[in-house]
Computed example of a mutant assay.
Amino acid sequence: MLRHSWTAIHRLLRNAAGSLYHILIVTLSAVIALMLPVSARQFLSWWSRIEHNTSALIAVEMTVAVLLIMVLSYVHRSLRDRTLAAAASGAGLVSFYPRRAPDAQRRIKRLKEEQGTGRTIMVIGSSGYSTFVDQVGDLSSVLDKCLGAHILLVNPSSAEARARIEAIGHPEHTLAGFREEVRQSITLLKRLRAMGKAVKLKLYADPPLVKMVILGDYLWLQHYHADLDIQTMPEYVLRHNRKDHGLYTLYAHYFQQRWNDTDIPEYDLDTDELVYRTRSGGEVRRDSFELDLIEEASVT
């Protein structure tokens, strides 16, 4: 209720700001028109006093030259920015967060809540802990309000997971800690499934390439650097456009390819087994995942 009220107030203020802007432009135009005759007379009077003063003329010329340089530089920069903005718009890029400052973190979380409520979200990540298990994670509250989720995480038992942790080389990032984070993510997804949400989890074995969250028409993207924590990497926001030629379509297609890859097993949240299927959905085999052993490994 409070959110709907705030949305209505925000819309009202935005409409009022637009009307105020037009009133201000009309008023300013009228003031300039009224002041033109007086300004012209004052300029002619001032020019008649300095036209025979060499020092004053040189100073005026230098001032005009500096102003022209500034104006031309501004116009050039504006045209360049418009070109870049058009390219970004064509690619579907709507926002860019170079670093996660506290104010940016709050804005990111709020935007994801708005875009993910009542939708089936799609996620590719590493352990999933910082994304939707941690209470300050970007999707910690979105999962409670979504219809369902398709999630791809790294298999903590794979050799690639060990290589990824070793490459980061940070004392706080250990293989045992990573496995514990995956275990907590699975526990959370089981709880969501028990609540009636359509949650599916798949575990891939290759090194993580991107952290990607698809929320309806918006896609949030970060790159997993070989030896850096994902939290230090910039985040991009892409929006789907009707022409289907933006980067949103590219990455959404990448997600579908990964999701439909028969080499990536589905995790059965009821039996703790990895289920391998054919492209048509037929079951090929099941492998025990040994979730309890992962929990024990994280403790020892």
Score class of each variant (00 low, 15 high):
L189I: 08
D227Y: 06
M233S: 10
L203A: 00
T187P: 00
G246V: 13
L219Y: 11
R277M: 13
Q256H: 13
R279P: 08
R258D: 06
D206M: 06
H240K: 15
G282A: 12
D287A: 08
R179V: 12
K200S: 11
A194E: 14
Q231H: 04
L203D: 01
Y204H: 11
Q184M: 12
T232Y: 05
Y248S: 06
K243E: 12
K243I: 10
D217T: 12
S280M: 08
Q231F: 01
Y254C: 01
Q257M: 12
I214M: 13
P265F: 07
H223Q: 07
I264T: 15
L221P: 02
V182G: 00
M195H: 11
F178G: 02
I230C: 02
A194R: 15
D229Q: 10
S185E: 09
P265E: 11
V237A: 05
P208F: 02
G246L: 10
Q256G: 00
I264W: 08
R279Y: 12
V182Y: 00
Y224S: 02
Q222C: 04
P207F: 06
H245L: 04
K202A: 13
Q222S: 12
K200P: 00
H245S: 02
H225V: 05
R239L: 13
V275D: 04
Y224C: 04
Y248K: 07
T232F: 03
K190V: 14
L247D: 10
Y236G: 00
Q184T: 03
P208Y: 03
L188R: 15
N260Y: 04
A205L: 05
V182N: 00
L203Q: 01
D287N: 13
P234V: 06
E283Q: 15
L203P: 01
L192K: 10
E181K: 13
T278H: 14
L189N: 01
K190D: 06
R285I: 01
L203S: 01
V237N: 01
Y218L: 04
M195V: 03
V275C: 10
R242T: 13
M212T: 14
M212K: 10
Y254I: 09
R183G: 09
I230F: 05
P207L: 14
E181P: 00
N241A: 07
G246F: 14
L219R: 02
G216Q: 08
G196T: 04
F178T: 05
E181S: 11
R242F: 09
P234T: 07
D217K: 09
I264G: 03
L228G: 00
R239W: 12
Y254R: 11
H223F: 10
Y218P: 00
A226F: 03
Y254P: 00
L228F: 06
E180S: 13
T278D: 07
R258Y: 06
G246W: 14
A194V: 07
L274I: 14
Y276T: 02
Y218T: 07
Y204E: 07
I186E: 03
Y224D: 03
T249H: 08
T187N: 10
Q257E: 15
K200E: 15
G196F: 06
A198H: 13
